[in-house]
């Protein structure tokens, strides 16, 4: 699905990613954990193509294509989705209008007919049920005045509607109470299919009780210092990041 090789990236002239290697195959869920500031969001933003981040070395093959040859919107149309750590507000643009525009661009790219207003609304309502979102959000402006938790839930709703091949969830758990967390995790789990994959970025192991990952990677200071199965997350929970940091220093 995605193959990241020796990825280096700068932001504001400073190297943040210092050689990341990671392969994710269809049907897999990978968790990326690590302390604050280690570069988790940077990795997510680089993959999605945010212009503030500069790739200095390495390559990424996404579904057979060189990812860095694609504009951000093309990456989205190819099926890469990022649930943002800090979702942006777009005043005056309704949630449904926004999402319909995105979905129809993606459908166009895939050679499908655009959905009309009625068809879209039906789909939207189905997906809103999945993430237990009130229908009043349909006409509210994108993320404007949403609580932190509502924004995160809205990200999952968008994911559910757009049906990406690869979803990257950047700290979707932060700011959620336990009920909301369950709903979000449940949504992600329900959307899991043999032909798609997810990278779940978090710095708490909490979320991983609900979204069970196939692999866990620990990112420290721009490098993956340890990879393992879901037991690694529990280990980290018990001993903290310091143990892996030390391991990284020794290595």
């Amino acid at each position: 699905m995605i193959e990241i090789k020796n990825l280096h990236a700068n932001v504001a002239g400073k190297e943040i990613l210092k050689g990341i290697d990671l392969s994710v195959h269809a049907g897999e869920v990978h968790a990326i954990m690590g302390p604050n500031g280690s570069g988790k969001s940077t990795l997510a933003q680089v993959l999605a193509g945010h212009p503030a981040y500069e790739v200095t070395e390495g390559e990424v093959i996404f579904d057979g294509k060189n990812l860095f040859d694609l504009d951000p919107e093309e990456r989205a149309q190819e099926g890469l989705f990022l649930a943002f750590q800090y979702p942006v507000e777009i005043p005056g643009v309704s949630n449904s209008y926004f999402l319909k525009a995105g979905l129809n661009e993606i459908r166009k790219h895939r050679g499908l007919e655009p959905l009309d207003a009625m068809q879209f609304l039906k789909l939207l309502k189905e997906k809103m049920k999945l993430v237990e979102m009130d229908s009043s959000f349909i006409n509210r402006p994108v993320n404007e005045g949403f609580s932190g938790g509502e924004k995160k839930r809205n990200e999952i709703l968008q994911m559910a509607v757009l049906e990406p091949k690869l979803a990257i969830l950047d700290e979707t758990d932060s700011g959620l109470d336990i009920d909301a967390l369950k709903i979000v995790a449940d949504g992600v789990t329900k959307l899991k299919r043999p032909d798609n994959a997810a990278i779940v970025v978090t710095h708490y192991q909490r979320l991983l009780n609900y979204i069970v990952p196939d692999f866990v990677h620990v990112l420290v200071n721009g490098r993956i210092v340890k990879s393992g199965t879901k037991e690694l997350a529990l280990e980290l929970e018990a001993s903290g990041y310091d143990s892996v940091k030390d391991a990284a220093a020794v290595a």
Binding site: D71, E73, A76, L82, F98, A101, G102, L103, E105
Partner: peptide, 9 residues
């Protein structure tokens, strides 16, 4: 960027 990430040019 948020719009583009959702496929909108």
């Amino acid at each position: 960027f948020y719009c583009k990430q959702r496929g909108i040019d």
